[in-house]
C-alpha cells in the first residue's frame, strides 16, 4: 500500500546527515590546509571519506523507494493527486496501510541499512589490508 514511505523517510534523514558530514569534512580539509579538490589524494592515504560511504546508503534508499513507488503507481496504489495514496480515500484502509508501513516498510529500511553496515565492514577490511600492504612495501624499501 505504502511500504516505500518508511525507506523514503530514512532516505530524507540520511541525506540531511550526509550534507552535514560533507560540510564537516570540507571544513576539516580546509583547516588542515588541503584543497577540497585534493579529496582523491586524501582517499588514498586515509581511506574512503565517510560522506561517500553514507552516500551508498542514500543511493540504495532513494533508488529503492523510487522504484517501489513506480510499482505502487503501476498497481494504482499511488496517484498524482491528493491524498496521493489511494488507501487514504477509504478510512477502513488507513489502519492496514499504517500497519504495512510499520511492518514491511520498517523491515525494508532495516534490511537496506544492515546491508550497508556489511558494506562498511568490508570496505574497512579492504582499507586495513591496503594500509598493511603499503606499510610492508615501505618496510621492504627501507
Amino acid at each position: 500500500m505504502a511500504c516505500f514511505t518508511a525507506p523514503l523517510a530514512e532516505a530524507i534523514i540520511v541525506t540531511i546527515i550526509k550534507k552535514r558530514i560533507e560540510k564537516k569534512e570540507k571544513a576539516t580539509l580546509s583547516l588542515s590546509g588541503k584543497d577540497s579538490t585534493k579529496i582523491a589524494e586524501t582517499e588514498n592515504h586515509s581511506g574512503i571519506p565517510f560522506s561517500r560511504k553514507i552516500g551508498w546508503l542514500t543511493k540504495m534508499l532513494w533508488g529503492g523507494s523510487f522504484l517501489l513507488a513506480i510499482e505502487h503507481i503501476w498497481h494504482g496504489e499511488v496517484v498524482p493527486w491528493a491524498p496521493f495514496l489511494t488507501a487514504m480515500n477509504n478510512p477502513a484502509d488507513i489502519q492496514p496501510m499504517l500497519m504495512e508501513i510499520a511492518t514491511v516498510g520498517v523491515t525494508m529500511a532495516l534490511l537496506v541499512t544492515a546491508v550497508w553496515v556489511v558494506m562498511l565492514a568490508v570496505s574497512k577490511h579492504l582499507e586495513n589490508r591496503k594500509e598493511k600492504n603499503s606499510a610492508c612495501d615501505k618496510a621492504i624499501e627501507g
Binding site: M60, G64, L68, V104, V112
Partner: peptide, 21 residues
C-alpha cells in the same frame, strides 16, 4: 554508474522483504 547499481540493489532488497511478508 555505482548509483544505478545501488539503486537496483536497494529495490531488490526491498522486494525480497515484500516477498517474505
Amino acid at each position: 554508474f555505482s548509483m544505478l547499481v545501488l539503486m537496483y540493489w536497494g529495490a531488490t532488497l526491498m522486494w525480497v522483504v515484500d516477498g517474505f511478508f
